[in-house]
Design a protein around this nucleic acid. Structure first.
Length: 253
DNA sequence: CGAACGACCTGTTCGC
DNA sequence: TGCGAACAGGTCGTTC
């Protein structure tokens, strides 16, 4: 569920609440997470983000948290039964994750992609994209190419860039490519400033909703008029994922 | 190389 | 109302 803006929101909130504090007790209610008990204990020196992955530096080791589809963190009272809770000097944080896809682990097998905010990201990725025939949407969502973009933001970025999600990656002209990345940065920045997108379950560390939902142009707007031209938004499957786009604004070249 | 599919999971919504 | 199918923000492994 959580993509770059949601994880970035959590990262910033965790930096404010957790860095410099000690995690004293860990309660892994879900036995699948019991190995995290000892790994999580200690002083939190830093919280960082790598794509959609949160990275905690605790004492001298690094710990990764992949939130999966439904994972989120909540400070204080949980609104659903948590899979794991951690008590630190300053409060309790709960991992809420109904679908149980979230994973806690050591820093291994992090995706190799490049952060879309990195300088020269567009230029660097263009070199790799030149000979890739896969649809541009699947390229954008591949964490070994671009970090942090999932289904919602892929759809929204491509709509704003007026690019058809099925367009072969290699068909993009250099200027389209630069525009695409400029728009990606803008969309992601805007989403971060609104604390991400709450569709149903997502909440930030304090339980607040993400307001980018109000800016969604195509995601889950099947059969509704395009805000730009009035054509009905279409939903098709790409890599087995729902893919929303305007068939008029995002024509296949 | 990459597409297609199932697996991992639970919860919600939709159609009949 | 009830029931099953479809679907949901992510990733991984297998097969073709």
């Amino acid at each position: 569920m959580p993509e770059l803006p949601e994880v970035e929101t959590l990262k910033r909130e965790l930096q404010a609440e957790l860095v410099g504090k000690k995690i004293k007790e860990v309660f892994p209610f879900d036995p699948k997470l019991k190995e995290a008990r000892e790994l999580l204990k200690g002083e939190v020196k830093a919280v960082e983000r790598h794509g959609k992955v949160l990275i905690f530096q605790i004492d001298d080791h690094l710990l990764t948290l992949w939130l999966g589809m439904s994972g989120r963190l909540k400070l204080g009272d949980p609104d659903l039964p948590p899979r794991l809770s951690l008590k630190f000097t300053g409060g309790t944080i709960h991992l809420i994750d109904p679908r149980r896809f979230a994973k806690i682990g050591l820093q291994n097998g992090l995706p190799k992609g490049i952060d879309p905010f990195q300088r020269e990201a567009a230029q660097f990725l263009f070199q790799r994209a030149k000979c890739i025939k896969r649809p541009i949407k699947s390229f954008l969502m591949d964490q070994d190419y671009v970090l942090g973009i999932g289904n919602i933001y892929a759809c929204e970025i491509l709509f704003r860039a007026k690019i058809n999600p099925f367009l072969p990656t290699c068909n993009l002209e250099p200027e389209e490519w630069n525009l695409l990345f400029k728009i990606a940065q803008k969309v992601l920045e805007e989403a971060i400033s609104l604390r991400g997108t709450t569709f149903s379950q997502w909440r930030d560390l304090y339980g607040q909703e993400g307001l980018f939902r109000e800016r969604l142009m195509v995601y889950q707007r099947e059969e509704k008029p395009c805000f730009r031209c009035g054509t009905l938004i279409r939903r098709e499957l790409l890599q087995g994922r729902g893919t929303w786009f305007c068939p008029n604004c995002q024509k296949e070249d």
